[in-house]
Design a protein around this nucleic acid. Structure first.
Lengths: 243, 243
DNA sequence: CAGTGGTCTAGACCACGCG
DNA sequence: GCGTGGTCTAGACCACTGT
């Protein structure tokens, strides 16, 4: 038999998916809902937690629980983004970039294959779609190979690597490691998602033909609306074919 | 100031990562821990929930809380697995396969590009590493193109597609869609993971050179120890165009 | 300030695993 | 049966958001 919180979650989920509760709507307060459902506030909150994990509800401290806007799905196109632009053509993404100079340490040294203390440029990018945080990226580039002209441009998290490819038309290898985890508290607040909503974490390392790593990107996408797509064309005789 | 449950989680996490609590160890009962930390059971349980989400602790109803064995990391190699076998060379994976005949419905029809009711063979695979559930796969193949000899073999979730490639040496396209989410209750119990531990869900669709979809695989990997890796070798002389 | 969610308590009762 | 975790209660007090 379903537990109380499952029943409540199911009921609220129904009301959301059948649009009786519409995106942006504020739910009754937790105290009111608890009274309506004849449960304690703790039980009601655990029901809401399930809906948060599914990305249906967003809690805002001091304001209430809101039905999330069903945002456009985010598609991250793997393989170095060569096949097509991955943003929807009509997507209006606003991107904030914070550029800082840092020095390699910890995992970054291994990713970039540089020694500890190596000077790097960090791009801390947050993209927004209509005020709603959309994705998060930290991109690291060794400072000795980043032309200043490139570094000072606004840099979409998906575009930095493409720009470098354009500048240096050598072959490059891209290695993308994808994992699923819960967000760090900081990531959760930046993306305005619940700490119980899984994120897709992509680590992308780009190397030039000499094997030198020219960029490492740590991307974080909200799991409720992000997919990473990788398309492989197996080749027998002829060269690559474009889709 | 960190909340009580954060302090407790941090303390227990320390005791686990510094091996003062070793893999397989049973923690004191929740009531005992609550007394030790001078908190209520509810607070203590929420601290344990954080550690579950990180994959450090496994709760077993009626038995206790256990420090998880740190299992070998799972690496899923994308790109159709042509470059290398993705299982560690010394991995001892035991795989159970349940083969059933089903008919296409719902999302499957779109994935396989067949009509509703089309006869399919479903492979329901669970792989184990030393009794510990490791990964979960549901693989669907249109029944009219699956040689019986292949279908009756034990079929590792990673190997079915490679086997088909070997049998039919035509070019093939592989499209892998990766997402992060919380497991369904069924997936959580099969993989013996917490329902708050994110999973990496990979949908892999393989097509032959004619564009016919020959296989759809739905893979679920525990997020605390799985990565999917995609490697792309860019070729310059072949005429890629940017944007 | 009033109203909201966030944390926490000190219990109760139920369901599971094992001897 | 006993000890374990799973669910739930009816509060209390704190922190944040708006007026």
């Amino acid at each position: 038999m379903p537990s109380r919180r499952h029943s409540i979650a199911n009921d609220l989920r129904d009301r959301i998916t059948t649009a009786r509760l519409k995106p942006g709507d504020r739910l009754p307060s937790e105290a009111q809902l608890a009274t309506q459902y004849q449960v304690s506030t703790a039980t009601l909150r655990s029901a809401l937690a399930m809906l948060q994990g599914e990305g249906l509800v967003e809690k805002i401290h001091g304001k209430g629980n809101f039905v999330r806007h069903s945002l456009r799905r985010i598609t991250y196109a793997g393989g170095g983004s060569t096949q097509a632009p991955q943003a929807a053509p009509d997507a209006t993404l606003r991107i904030t970039v914070r550029t800082t100079k840092v020095r390699a340490r910890g995992d970054l040294t291994a990713l970039l294959q540089v020694s500890t203390g190596c000077p790097l440029t960090e791009f801390h990018c947050v993209s927004y779609e209509a005020k709603s945080p959309h994705s998060l990226a930290r991109i690291y580039v060794p400072r000795d190979l980043a032309p200043a002209a490139v570094l000072n441009e606004p840099c979409p998290y998906v575009g930095a690597e493409a720009r470098f490819v354009a500048l240096r038309p050598t072959s490059a290898d891209v290695r993308e490691t994808v994992s699923a985890r819960l967000p760090t508290p900081e990531e959760a607040s930046t993306l305005r998602i619940s700490t119980v909503l899984a994120v897709l974490a992509i680590t992308r390392v780009t190397a030039d033909i000499t094997g030198r790593v020219v960029e490492a990107a740590l991307l974080v996408l909200p799991g409720d609306r992000a997919d990473a797509v990788f398309t492989t064309h197996h080749v027998t005789d002829e060269g690559w074919t474009e889709r």
